[in-house]
Design a binder for these strands. Structure first.
Lengths: 275, 275
DNA sequence: CGTCATATTGAAAGATGTCAACAGAGGTGG
DNA sequence: CCACCTCTGTTGACATCTTTCAATATGACG
């Protein structure tokens, strides 16, 4: 039951396959920049996308401090974006998959304030920003969609702030798993079975936890039957339970039937700080 | 030495004074949407700003879930934006002062995902978004600046993620004070002496800490001579020290000379989680 | 079969939250 | 003008979650 199974209409190119570069033929165009454009406008967008660029695992698409020229749409694969302190601590600001747009944070300053690193061999479409700005003036629906895309990024980050600021480790991890599932679902894959493309360290870096905490928490989720886990292959066995967990309703929650073990030794504290 | 003193060219209207509504005469236009526009274009922007709106202390400019129609530029006063959990926990996503633009997070979904509440009697300029979209098509520099503004918001939030995810309470608070100072400096006020417009609870809500932690930390900063503090009036006495603190270089840091008290009982731990 | 990176697990320490009592400011009404 | 009340902020003692430090798997790769 673990393997990640596409359950719907997507048609992901194998890496290395000779793929068509036109947006109209990309299986993720509904999620991406051309969303809502007609054939003609999509063609104009095609014309400014200079090339398809491959990024190998652990390579960076752009580095922190690098000057900004283009946005990138993930075509295939996964990326993380990370910001590094002057002291070397790393905050993962997001994980990105097919259809996501990368680089927007750099528009303000002309410099990338975080690095984008491929979590596996990946491909992106490069969109020169200057040309996009011109095109957007001629294609109002594209501009509107671009605005929505940036705004959604703002909103996404606010929800990260919410869990970094307010939630316990357990809740954060449950929410993380659920949200990964939801994103895969939006791409036609199973919301409950998928492969974690990132290391435990990256998960920790994203959730504001140490790698040990992540590891322990995952082990606990597994023992309690919320999830099954084999290396990076994960299945969410009890979505409702995870949801309850993410809301902080720890404690009694039905035992899950598996393992039978040490449930009940969690205090049923109510809320982490709050009035 | 505590009172907040304008040290430069700003000319804030007193609340209640009959103020000119044109952007060209607003002392914050350099920080706001009309940044970089010529007289003519600024006039066109003026025409779509429907009215100046007053928001009394504790009133909300918009509520969570409310449908989105307009952006708002803070003209006078201060706001907080806050997101609330299904469980009632509150995450303050930002504090906003004159020249800041509010409401961008709602562009994506058409619904406000956070509430904006006035921290004191305030005034905003309302900018109907549909009309802004039209205008932006006719005034490319305005569009570009609008994009930069949204992008800066993305970047700002990423830096909040960085400190919520990676930094200790002490560092967060130091950074918060410094950043407030920097923002006042950008508006022509003293970077070192200002009034905290928000409650301790709001500070905690922003920094992901309890009110008690904030209170204790402020007391410690004061005792160690980093700051002086009288109710909500704060002076940053040792900017370099606070900066070092925000970097996590706790420990020996020169005693500040004041109070003389219990310095040295902080462990000189190095980094909060990191490799 | 070593070596390295990644992940798991245990024990102990420590930072921050929780609970509780209290102080001071400001407002209200007698 | 004073008593009273509420709201905000301060401080203390204690609980506990999460980190830190350390040892030990596990798998990939030569």
């Amino acid at each position: 039951m673990h393997p990640t199974i596409p359950i719907a209409v997507v048609n992901p190119q194998r890496p290395g396959a000779r793929a068509e570069v036109r947006c109209g033929l990309c299986s993720f165009n509904k999620l991406c920049l051309p969303q809502g454009l007609d054939e003609h406008d999509m063609g104009r967008l095609d014309q400014i996308i200079v090339r398809r660029r491959r990024v190998l695992r652990d390579e960076s698409l752009y580095a922190m401090g690098q000057s900004f020229h283009s946005l990138y749409a993930v075509r295939l694969g996964h990326f993380k974006t990370a910001q590094v302190n002057r002291r070397g601590e790393q905050q993962i600001t997001g994980f990105h998959m097919a259809g996501d747009l990368l680089g927007m944070e750099a528009i303000g300053s002309g410099q990338h304030s975080c690095a984008a690193v491929a979590l596996e061999d990946s491909e992106v479409c490069e969109i020169p920003f200057a040309r996009l700005q011109e095109l957007v003036l001629q294609v109002p629906p594209l501009m509107q969609h671009f605005h929505r895309t940036m705004a959604r990024e703002i909103q996404r980050e606010q929800s990260v702030m919410l869990f970094l600021g307010n939630m316990r480790a357990e809740q954060r991890l449950a929410l993380f798993l659920l949200s990964m599932g939801a994103r895969y679902a939006a791409r036609g894959y199973s919301p409950a079975s998928f492969q974690l493309r990132m290391s435990r360290e990256d998960i920790g870096g994203y959730l504001g936890l140490t790698i040990e905490s992540v590891s322990r928490l995952l082990a606990r989720f597994r023992k309690q039957g919320w999830i099954s886990l084999d290396k990076r292959e994960v299945s969410l066995l009890d979505l409702a339970g995870l949801e309850r967990l993410s809301l902080g309703v720890a404690g009694e929650a039905e035992d899950g039937g598996v393992g039978g073990g040490e449930a009940g030794n969690q205090p049923d504290y109510a809320a982490p700080r709050a009035a």
